[in-house]
Amino acid sequence: MSIQHFRVALIPFFAAFCLPVFAHPETLVKVKDAEDQLGARVGYIELDLNSGKILESFRPEERFPMMSTFKVLLCGAVLSRVDAGQEQLGRRIHYSQNDLVEYSPVTEKHLTDGMTVRELCSAAITMSDNTAANLLLTTIGGPKELTAFLHNMGDHVTRLDRWEPELNEAIPNDERDTTMPAAMATTLRKLLTGELLTLASRQQLIDWMEADKVAGPLLRSALPAGWFIADKSGAGERGSRGIIAALGPDGKPSRIVVIYTTGSQATMDERNRQIAEIGASLIKHW
């Protein structure tokens, strides 16, 4: 067993022997301040990774656009098919120029040779490549099948209805392509620590998230040296922004954090800054 596999296998073990965790309302004060600064709703939840206990939450059962955070769930569904012998990570998928959609920095470079399922998941999570996500959605049967996968996990809230990039439209009061912070946090925890996926697939999923290259201005910008984070960000229309993450000190994750916002007129930089400040408060009061 590799060191990384050992780390993920012992996530519940280490967490069980940690000192009790206590909620700190100071972080919620910052979440509410972010709402004021952005002029928009902000949803927040913080779960203990081992027990699933909610440590703090704000608007945990209000719907927010998922945006690209759905790509972690998508690759979880792909990995479940791999575990069941219905898919192979090494299978190569070929596609054409007509398949390319807006923001496809990886797939646009491989029109000639195609990409493997493993490479597509890596591109979808680490670079948020939209064509990679659409190609992977095709392998599982489309958005409705991802929703069905989530329902089978016990998540009857999260739903995907459309493809990239239309799913980022974020129309107010439109339930399409949305989740709730509580539902997303619980589902992410199941994917990373539950028995739904094999140990190898859980490790692969967290490795992809740990290698995320496009979430630097968010929670990662607030992390002290030595902290662990595996995350996936999302951005959408109407001032929408979000991030889902597993993080913790001492090089291992111990909490799940989900943050979503929508309806702001603020710039992307300002949305990023507010999420980073929430992260800084979380870490300060850990």
Rank of each mutant, 00 (worst) to 15 (best):
T198M: 05
E166V: 10
E175G: 09
I243F: 14
G226V: 06
I93Y: 15
P143I: 13
E56T: 08
Y103A: 06
L150W: 05
D212Q: 12
A222H: 05
T112I: 15
G85L: 08
D231R: 10
W163F: 03
T107M: 03
L199A: 09
L74F: 01
K284Q: 03
E119W: 15
L167S: 08
G142T: 05
A40C: 06
L74A: 14
Q37K: 04
E164Y: 07
V106M: 15
F228A: 14
L218H: 03
G236T: 06
D161Y: 02
E166N: 14
E61G: 05
G239A: 10
H24I: 07
N152C: 06
P105G: 08
I229N: 08
D269C: 07
I278Q: 01
I206K: 13
T158E: 01
K252F: 15
T27D: 08
L120N: 02
A280N: 12
L137E: 14
E237G: 11
E108K: 15
P65V: 13
P253W: 04
P181Y: 00
F149V: 05
Y260V: 09
H94T: 04
G216P: 07
M209W: 14
R41F: 04
G43K: 00
A123H: 06
L47M: 04
I140D: 05
D177H: 00
R159T: 12
G242I: 01
A170K: 02
D99F: 02
T112D: 13
R81S: 06
I283T: 03
G251N: 07
I45P: 00
Q265E: 06
V82Q: 04
T138R: 12
F228W: 07
G43E: 00
P217Q: 12
L120V: 05
A84S: 05
H94V: 03
S104V: 11
G263C: 13
D113E: 07
T138C: 12
Y103W: 04
R162W: 06
L111R: 08
C121E: 01
I244M: 06
Q97D: 15
R273H: 03
T112V: 14
S128H: 00
R159N: 07
I259A: 06
M209C: 13
L47R: 11
I256N: 01
L219E: 07
E277S: 09
V157W: 14
N130H: 01
D161T: 07
T198W: 05
A211W: 14
D177Y: 00
G239I: 01
L160I: 07
E108H: 15
S240W: 01
L55H: 11
G90S: 10
K109L: 10
K71P: 00
R159Q: 14
S51R: 12
G239P: 01
E270L: 03
N272D: 12
C75K: 00
D36K: 12
K232A: 01
L197M: 15
T186I: 05
G279V: 06
K109T: 06
P25H: 14
L79R: 01
D231V: 13
V42A: 03
I93V: 15
P253S: 06
V42F: 01
P105I: 02
G248F: 02
L49D: 07
F70E: 15
L223W: 13
K32Y: 15
S51F: 15
H156D: 11
E175M: 15
V117P: 07
L55E: 04
P65C: 13
R220W: 09
A170D: 02
A124D: 01
G234M: 14
R92V: 07
L89M: 14
R59V: 03
I243K: 00
E270Q: 01
T116H: 09
V42K: 01
D161S: 03
S221Y: 04
E277R: 06
D231C: 04
G194A: 11
H24A: 07
G114C: 03
I275S: 01
I278E: 00
E119G: 11
L100M: 13
A200E: 06
T27F: 06
L137S: 12
N130K: 01
D83F: 04
T193A: 06
E108N: 15
K252A: 08
R63L: 13
C121W: 00
A230C: 07
L192Q: 03
E175A: 10
H285N: 12
I45D: 03
I140M: 10
E61C: 14
T198P: 06
K144E: 04
T198G: 06
Q203H: 02
L28D: 08
A148G: 07
L188K: 01
C75V: 07
G141Y: 14
R92F: 10
T179R: 00
S281H: 10
A211Y: 15
R91W: 15
P165T: 05
H110P: 12
L191A: 12
N272Q: 13
D174F: 14
S57V: 05
T112F: 13
A133I: 01
